[in-house]
């Protein structure tokens, strides 16, 4: 099907979102909660765009481009004054919530609009509630964290705000967090995340810690891999493979 984004005719498949089509055509739409690999949640609303049903339509509707499935003949504007203002408001609100998140402040400056300073959160965290960590954890199959409580009190936490068997300490949540909210403490012996301590597996070759014991068990438990993969770090495995290579080759 055909649609027009910012005056540029674009071709799209049924089921694609406006965001997908726009990015494929190198049209920039800022996002925070969106991640290509994760199911859309439409939480941050930074990616709003104005849409009209067809070229002659007068009434524009503001929609989240990450969730809105394209329709034939759709007219999309990604940077009308109204859209810019809404994005500015979203960032202003997040900046008030997360005064210590430089990523948000930087984005806000980049927008360069008419910013409003809202009352800063008293106990401001860096969490913008984008659910990336929750969705990534779900993708891995752990489901160790979720958004608990509701409204302004909503936060991401493991069940009972406590240690849980479901968490394997893999650190994916921290790695995928856009603002660095999730704290991770690393030592050669353990990794601490969500206030839970995980023993590190030491490489049988070089002794370096390379993943948590729980992650090792989780990956083995998936049944996709042989358990003996997990005794050595990647570098040592490559070294061993080189040795085998030489022996086979000679």
């Amino acid at each position: 099907m055909q649609l027009v984004i910012d005056g540029i005719p674009c071709t799209a498949e049924s089921g694609e979102t406006i965001l997908q089509v726009a990015r494929r055509n190198r049209i920039d739409i800022p996002t925070l909660c969106h991640h290509d690999a994760l199911e859309g949640v439409g939480a941050c609303r930074l990616c709003v765009v104005a849409v009209r049903a067809h070229a002659e339509a007068v009434d524009a509707q503001v929609v989240a481009s990450c969730m809105y499935a394209v329709k034939d003949g759709l007219q999309v504007d990604t940077a009308t004054p109204e859209v810019r203002r809404l994005r500015q408001t979203v960032l202003d609100l997040l900046a008030a919530r997360c005064p210590d998140a430089p990523e948000i402040q930087a984005l806000r400056e980049r927008m360069g609009g008419d910013a409003i300073d809202y009352a800063p959160a008293v106990d401001g965290s860096k969490c913008i509630m984008c659910y990336r960590c929750v969705r990534a954890c779900e993708a891995i199959g752990c489901n160790a964290i979720a958004a608990v409580n509701r409204g302004p009190q909503k936060e991401i936490a493991p069940p009972f705000f406590d240690a849980t068997q479901r968490c394997i300490g893999c650190g994916t949540c921290a790695a995928i967090c856009p603002t660095g909210h999730i704290a991770v403490t690393e030592t050669p012996q353990y990794r601490e995340i969500w206030s839970q301590r995980f023993a590190m597996a030491q490489c049988a070759g070089c002794g370096a810690p390379f993943m948590t014991e729980a992650t090792r068990e989780h990956l083995a438990g998936l049944g996709k891999l042989k358990p003996d993969y997990f005794t050595h770090c990647a570098a040592c495995r490559q070294r061993d493979a080189a040795a085998r290579f030489v022996r086979v080759g000679t």
Binding site: H35, A136, A139, T172, A175, I176, L219, L225, H232, A241
Partner: peptide
């Protein structure tokens, strides 16, 4: 690797039997 799809879980690093995938901590 489609970097936009990667969720940084390091499963692939663990999975390669030859250790051919390494992990860049700085860029995760």
């Amino acid at each position: 690797l489609d970097e936009n799809r990667c969720i940084h879980c390091q499963s692939c690093v663990a999975a390669c039997p030859f250790g051919h995938i390494s992990w860049a901590e700085e860029s995760r």
